[in-house]
Simulated assay, not measured.
Amino acid sequence: MGTPTFGGIPEAALDFYEDLEADNSKTFWAEHKHVYDEAVRAPVAALAEALAEFGPAKIFRPHRDVRFSKDKTPYKTHQGAFVAVGPSAGWYVQVDASGLMVAGGFYAATPEAVAQYRATVDDDVRGAELVRIVTDLERAGYERGGDRLKTSPRGIAPTHPRIDLLRHRTLTVSRQFGCPPWLSTPACVEHVAAAWREMAPLVEWCRQVL
Rank of each mutant, 00 (worst) to 15 (best):
W91R: 12
T170R: 12
A200H: 14
P153R: 04
E138I: 12
G178F: 11
D122R: 15
L137P: 12
A50D: 12
L137Y: 05
M101V: 14
E21T: 10
Q116R: 15
I59N: 12
R144D: 00
A113V: 14
E21V: 14
E143D: 14
A12W: 04
E138Q: 15
V114N: 04
S98Q: 15
I156R: 09
R139I: 00
M199I: 11
A200M: 08
V173S: 04
Y117W: 12
D164G: 11
T151L: 00
T151F: 00
L210C: 09
G127P: 08
Q116C: 01
P153S: 04
P56A: 15
P56F: 00
V44I: 15
A108H: 13
L137W: 11
V66G: 08
C188K: 05
T110M: 10
V125R: 15
Y36N: 05
P74S: 05
G105L: 07
L171P: 05
G141W: 06
D71Q: 09
A22P: 00
I133D: 10
Q176H: 13
S174G: 13
D124H: 11
H34I: 04
P111D: 02
A22K: 15
M1L: 08
R144S: 03
G104E: 03
A193P: 02
T5N: 01
E11A: 14
P10F: 08
T73H: 11
A39T: 07
A81P: 03
R67N: 06
C206L: 01
T172M: 12
L166Y: 10
G141M: 08
T172W: 00
R167M: 03
A52M: 01
T5K: 13
W182G: 06
S152D: 11
G104N: 06
G99H: 07
V121A: 02
V114Y: 02
T159Q: 11
F82G: 04
V192E: 05
K150H: 08
Q176P: 00
P186N: 10
G178Q: 09
S184G: 14
Q176F: 07
R197Q: 13
T172E: 02
R126G: 00
D96P: 09
A48S: 07
A113Q: 15
L51T: 00
H63G: 09
A84F: 10
V134F: 03
T185Y: 02
A48V: 02
E53F: 01
Y142K: 12
Y92N: 02
G80E: 08
T77S: 10
E11V: 09
